[in-house]
Design a binder for these strands. Structure first.
Length: 487
DNA sequence: TTTTGAGTTGTTCGA
DNA sequence: GTCGAACAACTCAAA
């Protein structure tokens, strides 16, 4: 039975179009068995968090539906990758296993083990690059070393990257004579037992179709104003493609293609402004993955080793206030609540909230990274790591240590009318614009009219920014001294 | 080879 | 009120 089929192991590539593994399977002209294995234990500390699991559930449902409409199915299994695959091999005897690579330290190890196992069974496993514009390891500076500064990385990417022709999955995907058993999606228990996902559900449409709808709408309506608009969290000028990209529901090639096409840009003479700004963002994702590939320890520890001895504080109460959006700084709290409710936070606010945790509260960036991992639908190890190390100043191309965001100034600059704050911090909804980003300075009479009782309906600031800033600079001074001593 | 200048995302201070 | 300087150290490529 099924002696000549091709097993396509879906993981972080939950799409049919522009999927190199599926493409190769179709080209082999054999029946295709699409498979997904859920094994969170083996993914270790970085197995998907609750918000990501919710997203994954919807995405598997969508992928399953897309496969069905093409006469195929998605086989779902649960358990260790090795055992599940072994079990399946005796069942369907595929002639080859195809998948798309996940360039993350843990996954590369898993792939090694699987490869060894399959080699013993004389079944070739072939993996493809389906998630990155350029293969990690291929973009190096003149010394043959990985880039640690973004701009030279970007220039090199522009020079070497050729947009690939898109590939569309066929109407019918050849099915095996007999399908192996599959678990129902519910058996993976990806959705929360208590339904807290209402806000997320209302915000997102996971799946390949959702990704393309999102991309088209973004290109049509937002790309032109993107360079400025992307910084204002009350506006919807960002692409919101991050969760789709993380789960491979759309490929970066497809995005590049659509955006660059619009700029009539082939190969790479002048991009239009919006296009260039946006593709640079896509390249930041690329940069993050390449860095994690070259420096796999950075998901846990700082790239700049002198930061290992940074005098971080231990303060569970402050951490909890930050997580719940009760720091007393409206823009920070708005961001943290948007995150909790929708599984996503605007990028500008991620920087402000991140800076606040690390510099104002002096709590380790890893705590922030873990919380984001837990709550983001777009949680991505490479992007999360780069972002947090950037904001903490301990990574590649890091923010200078003296760049400490002032949450009031940032709020006034990027949410000038307080629309974003009012949306997510309703207890401040009636505060006049003049005080919305620093209610503690407002006269009692104003507070009273806005029905704000500081310390009761909305917290006093948990730290005073000016003092906290000086404390952070002092902490960073100790790192600086360490650099000088070890030189 | 050495030097030079620029580098995603900022703030504060003092003239 | 506005503006420039200062706030490190290091990476990378162009000159």
């Amino acid at each position: 039975m099924n002696k000549d089929c091709t097993l396509v192991w879906f993981r972080r590539d939950l799409r049919l179009d522009d999927n190199p593994a599926l493409r190769a399977a179709i080209a082999a002209k054999t029946p295709v068995v699409p498979l997904f294995i859920w094994s969170p234990e083996e993914e270790g500390a970085w197995s998907p968090g609750p918000a990501s699991r919710w997203w994954l559930h919807q995405s598997l449902e969508a992928l399953s539906g897309d496969l069905k409409s093409r006469g195929s199915r998605l086989i779902l299994r649960k358990g260790s990758f090795l055992q599940t695959l072994t079990g399946l091999l005796s069942d369907i005897h595929p002639v080859r296993v195809l998948c798309n690579r996940i360039v993350e330290p843990g996954w590369l190890e898993i792939e090694e083990q699987i490869s060894t196992l399959l080699r013993a069974e004389k079944i070739p496993i072939v993996s493809f690059n389906g998630s990155l514009l350029a293969e990690p390891g291929t973009l190096l500076n003149r010394q043959g070393r990985p880039f640690q500064v973004f701009t030279p990385f970007w220039k090199t990417l522009l020079r070497v990257y050729l947009p690939e022709e898109g590939w569309t999955a066929p109407r019918v995907i050849p099915a095996p004579k007999q399908w192996p058993d599959s678990l129902p999606l519910e058996a993976l228990a990806l959705e929360p037992k208590i339904d807290w996902a209402g806000g997320i559900r209302a915000t997102w449409t996971p799946g390949e179709k959702g990704a393309h709808t999102q991309l088209s709408a973004f290109i049509k309506k937002r790309l032109e104003t993107y360079p400025e608009g992307r910084d204002f969290p009350a506006q919807s000028d960002t692409s919101r493609l991050s969760p789709y990209l993380h789960f491979g529901e759309i490929s970066p090639h497809a995005i590049w293609h659509c955006v660059a096409d619009r700029a009539a840009f082939h190969p790479h003479p002048g991009l239009m402004r919006g296009e260039e700004t946006f593709l640079r963002q896509l390249a930041w994702r690329e940069f993050a993955h390449h860095l994690l590939f070259h420096f796999p320890h950075t998901a846990e520890s700082p790239l700049r080793p002198e930061f290992s001895s940074f005098p971080w504080r231990h303060d569970p109460t402050a951490l909890e206030a930050w997580q719940k959006g009760l720091t007393g700084y409206p823009i920070v709290d708005a961001g943290m609540r948007e995150l909790w409710r929708t599984g996503w936070m605007h990028n500008r606010v991620r920087m402000i909230a991140g800076s606040f945790l690390v510099k104002d509260l002096l709590l380790p960036w890893q705590k922030g990274a873990q919380w984001f991992w837990h709550t983001l639908v777009d949680a991505d190890l490479a992007n999360n790591t780069l972002g947090w190390q950037w904001v903490a100043g301990c990574g590649a191309d890091a923010a200078p240590y003296f760049r400490i965001f002032n949450p009031v100034v940032q709020g006034q600059k990027f949410d000038p009318e307080g629309v974003y704050v009012r949306r997510w911090v309703p207890e401040l909804a009636q505060m006049p614009v003049a005080w919305i980003h620093h209610p503690w300075d407002a006269p009692l009479e104003i507070l009273g009219r806005a029905k704000v009782k500081l310390g009761i309906s909305y917290p006093w600031p948990i730290v005073e920014h000016g003092t906290a800033r000086i404390r952070a600079l002092a902490g960073l001074d100790s790192v600086k001294r360490l650099i000088i001593e070890t030189r």
